[in-house]
Design a protein around this nucleic acid. Structure first.
Length: 443
RNA sequence: GCCGCGGUAGUAUAGCCUGGCCUAGUAUGCGGGCCUGUCAAGCCCGUGACCCGGGUUCAAAUCCCGGCCGCGGCGCCA
């Protein structure tokens, strides 16, 4: 290996390494050439360190050139690690350096200040944008959320599954699908693993989870939609009602909170974004849709037609309600109207206009959707007809229910939305390394 | 898909309403120079831009139309 270790590690080990020779590899972050002494700041993913070049430190030609290196040059500097009056408290007394790669044209984006550039420019040059620690931090948080998801559900007896993303039929929600040509036949990119995760539960796994991409061919132009995003899905059998699913969702968000706040690296990212806490009370408040209509109208003067879905403003207001009334960043909205839920949702036994469907709002944005699913074949077919659909077109799905299906339910969560809301990002594209939207297909 | 706003050097912006004073200003980057402890380094010199197409006008960065792209809101969704 050319590189001995991350800069932050070297800095942290100063007591042990002081006075010894180390090699620092990374990108040239800044140059302050003061004549006979030159300061080069080297950056890697973990931090920066200042390398000091004094006349006589190395051969004259190399010394002269050190002050002329372009920003973002990739290099390794050898030298003695010493304490210094720098921000890190540590600096490198340089003896030699090797340039590994130099920029061949002017930088279209300056990494140090990339977060001040327009988002379109940043995305066009994502490989420069992500050299900014504020930006890398987003994806370190994203990785931590994904890891928390896998660990939490594995510990809770769920099995990770990997379902196909090339499917024969558009699935459930009526969202537009991307067609693909599959050996001459028409196929689609999966818009959700919904049917397959239910199949896995019915197939005896009982409890499953999956992290995977999903595709929506909707021409949205908003700060919270992507045409490709990551869905965190769970599905579990032998439940008594949607509350069993909600409890598992709630536990996961508690885990996200404790992981993010408990780890020094993710905690410092949160601090960069001015986030000092993620508020989850002893129990996340729950409000039925029918109560929500009332709260919205009486408290905020927001009138929603009875039986209608929440619009974005209503979501924001309920987020505010959770914050003011319960000191919570989260609120479950339950018992969604049948009219705004997909056919596989189980309806309430005594009030079939309302369902077991729920959403979880995080700081006023929907990040989770779930429900108990209808596992009784006759009811399921009736629900399909009730939606004006043809049971024949869902034959492959309905077949799952013919050979013994336990009562079950589950939820789908948007990874990028969770990250966006956690860091209070203004646009979901920031939370995705390579976002796809109706206009953007590269890089 | 609908509605609104916008597109000026590599980047971020000023100028546009009220056309001529724009040879298009500023910061940063980039190129060169000075400086032995800088850390938002400093100082000096230089470089570099009006999205594309059409129209109005003596004259267009500025006004009008179309296209493309961007930003935001809505519908729909996670």
């Amino acid at each position: 290996m050319l590189k001995q270790g991350f800069i932050a590690e070297l800095v942290a080990r100063i007591d042990e390494l002081e006075g010894s020779n180390v090699r620092v590899c990374g990108w040239l972050h800044s140059v302050r050439d003061v004549g006979r002494i030159k300061f080069l700041v080297i950056r890697d993913r973990t931090g920066t360190i200042q390398a000091v070049f004094k006349r006589g430190c190395c051969d004259e030609e190399k010394f002269r050139r050190a002050g002329k290196l372009r920003l973002e040059t990739v290099l390794c500097v050898d030298g003695e690690l010493v304490r210094g009056r720098t921000k890190e408290g540590v600096e490198l007394r340089a003896r030699d350096y090797a340039v590994l790669s130099e920029p061949v044209e002017p930088l279209p984006l300056e990494p140090a200040t990339s977060h001040e550039a327009g988002l379109a420019t940043r995305l066009n040059y994502r490989w420069l944008d992500t050299r900014n620690p504020r930006v890398t931090g987003i994806f370190i948080v994203e990785a931590a959320v994904a890891r928390a998801f896998r660990e939490y559900y594995r510990e809770r007896g769920f099995v990770e599954i990997f379902t196909s993303k090339i499917v024969a039929a558009g699935t459930e929600s009526g969202a537009e699908v991307f067609p693909v040509i599959y050996f001459g036949r028409e196929a689609y990119l999966a818009q959700s693993p919904q049917f397959y995760k239910q199949m896995a539960v019915i197939g005896g796994f009982e409890r499953v989870y999956e992290i995977g991409p999903v595709f929506r061919a909707e021409p949205h132009h908003t700060t919270r939609h992507l045409t490709e995003y990551h869905s965190l899905d769970i599905e579990m059998g032998f439940i008594e009602g949607p509350e069993d699913v909600m409890r598992e969702v709630e536990g996961f968000f508690r885990r996200v909170r404790s992981d993010l706040l408990g780890d020094q690296v993710t905690r410092s990212v949160l601090e960069m974004y001015g986030i000092d806490d993620i508020r989850i009370p002893r129990e996340i408040p729950r409000i039925t849709m029918r109560e929500a209509y009332k709260v919205l109208e009486e408290r905020y003067g927001k009138k929603l037609p009875y039986g209608e879905d929440l619009d974005p403003e209503a979501e924001r207001l309920l987020g505010r309600y959770a914050s003011e009334e319960y000191d919570s960043d989260f609120i479950f909205v339950t018992e969604y109207p049948w009219g705004s839920r997909p056919f596989y949702t189980m309806r309430l036994e005594s009030e079939p206009d309302w369902t077991t469907g729920f959403d979880l709002l995080y700081r006023g944005l929907e990040v989770v959707t779930g429900s108990q699913r209808e596992h009784r074949l006759d009811r399921l077919m009736a629900n399909i007809r009730d939606k004006g659909l043809e049971p024949e077109s869902f034959k492959f799905y309905l077949d799952f229910f013919k050979h013994g299906a336990p009562p079950h339910g589950g939820a789908g969560m948007g990874l990028e939305r969770i990250v966006m809301q956690t860091l209070r990002l203004g646009n979901i594209r920031e939370a995705r390394l390579l976002p796809r939207d109706p206009e953007r297909l590269t890089p």
